[in-house]
Design a protein around this nucleic acid. Structure first.
Length: 458
RNA sequence: GUGGUUGUAGCUCAGCUGGUUAGAGCGCUGGUUUGUGGUACCAGAAGUCGCCGGUUCGAACCCGGUCUUCCACCCCA
């Protein structure tokens, strides 16, 4: 063997059966996006760097794949910058494009650029790969697909309610029972920070709070102290650390805690509306719960925040997330367009479905009928049969050479082809064909004139 | 970006404190079975032991570097 080829870290090849399973998920997701009234758009794989940079925080900027300029890009860098050997000052001068990091920011750019053609409220969905220069881990890749559904141009909380329903519809259809849709609200977090007097430390506060289930109360307190949040403030916020009970209990507690904060009370009100609506509408298989510790890194959320956890017992980061952002298009110059959206982590959903064995067997079955090749004349008769089967929409194939029957049968078996058709000398003479059911092992003989009987029996 | 971990046949992995021609199971190819797969038996092919360098009479094994895998952190789908 020559040099072994390889693919970059964090990327994957997909085999036919994997693509089959991925398409199964895509199709279900798309189907529900459509029935909820969303329309598809697509955007380029790469954007201008300044469209993306600065939208995801410093951490996000680090993870953006930058594309080297074409041509003699080095000669255009001034000597001072060049000799500084400082990556962060040189990079912007030699990389004017960058790979898409998520679908939300390109969507905001799209909305601004096409604002005059769009009928608001605009509901769009988008299923495309995104790239992040992250260190790979289980369920974390450097190239992965996001499936987003967003609504822009409506402040109605009914959108949030519908998005919860959409999550539920899709996960139910995928057979993924027992997902938890965690719900929080940025205004609630802001209210808490305000009430405890740590308004300016909102981000640090929420990031620390987000880790509660991971590092425990003591860990969170330690981190908050390190970030400069006072002991008195932490003490005031301490009811949050042991918040439990039903959604309405939690709401009552929050309402009490935030009664002095206007923004906080507004957040509680929003939470309450969404929860009450869902209680009235009901969900098929998902559960909607308040989770005050849910922060999520993306800074642009301003209202509801969603995150979906896989069913209990599956070790996997969140399989979906989203939220309300009041001013995402503002950074591109279009004010006062509120948006709310959710995202599905296709690759993680795949891993979860695979682990729980929830893919239907049929997704791996491509060809339904294989004709054994016995020789030239027999093959010609087989092709005639296959032509008719294909016209009827039956995926069928002929083994291309008259190899040993054993080999042909084995091929059919390995390919999981459920029916094998035999047309040998005898059948040729009798104008018939033998159908072998590979699952049962049984055989049946049909006349050429009875092809439709066979098709109907499939 | 920080710390750790992994790499041996197509796949999953053995390989003792460094010592001749590197092993197994599965898979693959052929045969038992010249018109029947999934079971059984027999035989066979297949590896510059991730890559580069060093130590040594001698390296899959020790040392350094590098790439890759997985994990924790950071962050996140």
């Amino acid at each position: 063997m020559a040099q072994k080829p390889s693919i970059p870290k964090g990327t994957r090849d997909f085999s036919p059966s994997e693509v089959g399973k991925r398409n199964y998920i895509f199709n279900i997701v798309k189907k529900h996006f459509k029935t909820f009234g969303f329309q598809p758009i697509e955007t380029p794989s790469f954007e201008n760097s300044d469209t993306l940079l600065g939208k995801y925080g410093d951490e996000g900027d680090r993870l953006i794949f930058k594309i080297l300029n074409s041509g003699d890009f080095i000669s255009k860098v001034d000597d001072v910058t060049y000799s500084s050997k400082n990556s962060s000052t040189i990079a912007p001068k030699i990389t004017e494009k960058a790979l898409r990091y998520d679908l939300t920011v390109p969507f905001a750019r799209y909305v601004v650029m096409h604002q005059n053609e769009i009928d608001f409220p605009f509901k769009r969905y988008q299923i495309q790969p995104v790239w992040r220069a992250d260190r790979p881990q289980k369920g974390r890749f450097r190239e992965f697909y996001q499936c987003d559904a967003d609504v822009v141009g409506s402040k109605s909380l009914l959108q949030e309610v519908e998005l919860v329903q959409l999550y539920d519809a899709i996960f139910s259809d995928l057979g993924l029972v027992g997902t938890t849709i965690k719900l929080n609200n940025r205004k609630v977090l802001a209210g808490i920070a305000e009430v405890i007097g740590a308004k300016h430390l909102l981000v640090d506060f929420t990031i620390a709070l987000d880790k509660l289930d991971k590092i425990g109360k003591d860990g969170v307190v330690t981190e908050m102290l390190n970030k400069g949040i006072s002991e008195a403030a932490i003490e005031k916020a301490s009811p949050l650390f042991s918040l439990s009970g039903s959604n309405s209990d939690q709401l009552a507690m929050l309402r009490r805690l935030l009664s002095d904060s206007e923004v906080g009370s507004k957040g509680v009100e929003e939470l309450e509306f969404i929860l009450n609506s869902i209680v009235e509408l009901g969900l098929q298989s998902a559960q909607l719960t308040i989770d005050v510790t849910l922060a999520r890194g993306l800074n642009y959320y301003t209202g509801a925040i969603f995150e979906v956890a896989a069913p209990n017992g599956v070790q996997m980061g969140s399989i979906g997330g989203g939220g309300r952002y009041d001013d995402l298009t503002g950074i591109f110059g279009l004010k006062d367009v509120s948006g709310v959206g959710i995202s599905f982590g296709l690759d993680r959903i795949y891993l979860v479905l695979d682990e729980l064995n929830l893919f239907p067997k049929t997704v791996e079955q491509d060809v339904q009928v294989l004709c054994v090749n016995f020789g030239e004349q027999e093959a010609m008769a087989s092709i005639k049969l296959i032509t008719q089967l294909r016209k009827a929409g039956v995926a069928s194939d002929l083994y291309p050479t008259s190899a040993k029957m054993q080999k042909q049968m084995k091929y059919a078996n390995n390919r999981k082809i459920p029916y094998v058709i035999l047309i040998g000398a005898q059948e040729l003479e009798a104008n018939s064909f033998v159908v072998k059911n590979m699952n049962k092992g049984s055989q049946a003989t049909f006349q050429f004139t009875e092809i439709s009987d066979f098709i109907n029996s499939l």
